[in-house]
Design a protein around this nucleic acid. Structure first.
Length: 592
DNA sequence: GCCGTTTTCGGCCCGACTGTTTTCAGTCG
């Protein structure tokens, strides 16, 4: 039974996702059943969100009833349903709810343009009870006879269904940044715009982005014209909304949705704060402000009694009024940041400029597309703050990635030495990404591993097993400096293999092994929540781009974002230090 | 159904846009 296997911890596991899905559907049921249930809807939605955000499998929390109750949004009733699910595989209340709400209607309520009222009306009047029937009812024109269903509304529903069928997935942070910056530039060029900035999950640097939010200031007289220009920018596929103060467009590129919100100068800070979120952070901040006698909304901070405007032009002045430290957007996830900001205890987060070198780069020796000399030259030109780059090509078992034999590594060393001699400084470091074999041993001999400046050990095979012991065994090897992409996930494509993070973090601390923050946009591995815990426990982290081409070194900003979302200072990140310190880190492990 | 620097009861963020309505309900973020 699931509860007896609680030692198997996973990231974003089946348990969490499935249970979150059940609670989300239960929320939809209650939404359908009417306004009287609206607070129950909120409760189940909150519980669903909490489950989706968990670092470890829910069964690890369920081992003890108290830890389950500590989870935000989980009270007595929901806790008992979680236990029931873990023991029986289902939730009886949900099974009963399905008798009162046709189950086929639940997914419909997740579609743009379909709320509970609409779905209910169509079920009652036309007997529609699933998505297929909805589509055929719309196409056959049966909706047009109904009161309240005009042509525009029906058209909107049709578009919602089409969009949903396309399942436009969330964008990776990297591509969202590019689209966001490009569109921001165009917004800034619209006459009348004074200031504009990205908000939302993009500003918080979340690993995936749903839509792109932009907040801008302009004189009110210009608003109408600005909205008009915004919705007719080149590359706009469809206008989703276009009101007096905000507009929403769908771009051809990536089918990305972009929302623009116009405000006045003195509202800019409060609007930025509001539209940066996250939702839970906003609610917590507003609720706290309310308790202090203020009202916070996107127009500013107001005295709750007199409604007098007190602050709002900048985020800084709002935090100052609240007596808080400025909360960097990456921390606004309702993970204790408000409390820490009030106490003035927020960490001073690492910045990209603190980085002194790239810890994970592939060359043409294995599966990279650039020569080592090319890499060195490019980095020295483009990243003047860098003092080193570690070439980490693959070991022999990675045949598809043209892993190097011991002899080839010998020749690579000679090339690196020659290049460094030419440069007049040891800029290029001998590294390796050595495979951790299924039994936890390494793909290269200790004799060879000793000759590297940096040994990164990664799992590339047998991805479906629990890999905790395998990773721990690699940590135990004194020659391994760092574990590469520890979770093995590919965002949106492949979940993490099971890892007991607590055990791995403890193992990394015990053995003096670093964990990688891999900056590849679809990896971002370790994930931010794990980075936070690892850093808090004293694990050193090493950020690498895992570059396979000359244009990938900028991925470093992605890795830094993960570190920032993990509350890391530069002291937590190995490659903010000069190489001498990295050598010290390596030899201190070897001499243990 | 959850929660507490005001609370174990009585709240639960708060405002904009749309379509179809003659004043607002539904939906969204």
């Amino acid at each position: 039974m699931a509860t007896t296997t609680t030692t198997k911890k996973r990231l974003e596991t089946g348990h969490n996702a499935e249970l979150a899905g059940i609670f989300h559907q239960m929320a939809s049921c209650y939404r359908y059943l009417g306004a009287k249930q609206r607070f129950r809807v909120i409760a189940y939605d909150n519980a669903s969100r909490t489950l989706n955000g968990l670092k470890d499998d829910i069964s690890t929390y369920a081992a003890d009833v108290k830890t389950l109750d500590k989870l935000h949004g989980v009270g007595e009733s929901i806790a008992s349903k979680i236990l029931e699910y873990l023991q029986t595989g289902h939730v009886a209340t949900f099974e009963q709810l399905k008798h009162r709400v046709p189950p086929g209607l639940l997914p419909l309520m997740d579609i743009n343009g379909f709320g509970p009222a609409t779905v209910k009306t169509l079920h009652r009047k036309l007997g529609i009870s699933n998505q297929e029937e909805m589509i055929s009812a719309i196409e056959s024109g049966r909706l047009e006879r109904l009161k309240g269903f005009g042509p525009k509304r029906i058209d909107n529903m049709r578009k919602g269904l089409k969009l949903f069928a396309g399942q436009h997935a969330r964008m990776l942070l990297w591509e969202a940044m590019h689209i966001g910056n490009a569109i921001l530039k165009e917004v800034l060029a619209i006459p009348g715009i004074k200031k504009a900035g990205l908000a939302g999950s993009l500003r918080r640097r979340k690993e995936t982005i749903g839509d792109i939010d932009i907040v801008a200031t302009a004189g009110k007289k210009d608003w109408k014209k600005i909205i008009g220009q915004f919705i007719s920018l080149p590359g706009v596929e469809r206008v989703l909304a276009g009101g007096e103060t905000k507009a929403s467009i769908l771009l051809e590129r990536n089918k990305a949705q972009v929302d623009l919100r116009l405000v006045t100068d003195r509202e800019y800070g409060s609007a930025l704060l509001y539209f940066t979120g996250c939702r839970e952070h906003n609610i917590a901040l507003r609720t706290w402000a309310k308790g202090q006698g203020w009202k916070l909304n996107e127009y500013g901070v107001f005295d709750a009694e007199t409604d007098k405007w007190l602050a709002g032009a900048t985020e800084e002045e709002i935090y100052q009024l609240f007596g808080m430290h400025f909360i960097p957007p990456e921390l606004r996830e309702e993970r204790g940041e408000i409390d820490m900001a009030r106490k003035g205890l927020l960490p001073r987060l690492i910045e990209t400029k603190d980085i002194r070198g790239d810890m994970h780069v592939h060359s043409t020796w294995s599966d990279g597309t650039a020569e080592i000399s090319e890499i060195a030259e490019y980095i020295r030109k483009s990243y003047p703050g860098y003092e080193y780059v570690v070439i980490t090509d693959h070991s022999p078992s990675q045949r598809v990635a043209r892993g190097l034999t011991p002899q080839e590594f010998g020749r690579q060393f000679a090339e690196i030495d020659k290049l460094n001699a030419k440069l007049g400084l040891p800029f290029v470091r001998r590294g390796v990404e050595v495979d951790i074999l299924p039994d936890g041993s390494l793909d290269l001999s200790d004799h060879l591993l000793q000759q590297f400046d940096w040994v990164l050990a990664s799992v590339h095979s047998n991805l479906n097993q629990d890999n905790t012991d395998r990773l721990l065994k690699a940590c135990e090897n004194p020659l391994v400096c760092c574990i590469g992409h520890p979770s093995g996930r590919l965002i949106g494509k492949r979940e993490s293999y099971p890892v007991d993070w607590e055990k791995l973090i403890a193992g990394a601390v015990r053995t003096g092994t670093a964990l990688e923050i891999n900056s590849q946009p679809e990896r971002l591995d370790i994930p931010d929540v794990v980075a936070k815990e690892a850093a808090a426990k004293g694990v050193m982290l090493a950020i690498g781009t895992d570059s396979h081409a000359i244009n990938q070194f900028d991925f470093m900003t992605m890795g830094v974002s993960v570190a920032r979302r993990g509350w890391c200072t530069k002291e937590n990140i190995l490659n903010t230090f000069p190489w001498k310190e990295i050598e010290r880190f390596r030899s201190s492990k070897r001499s243990r």
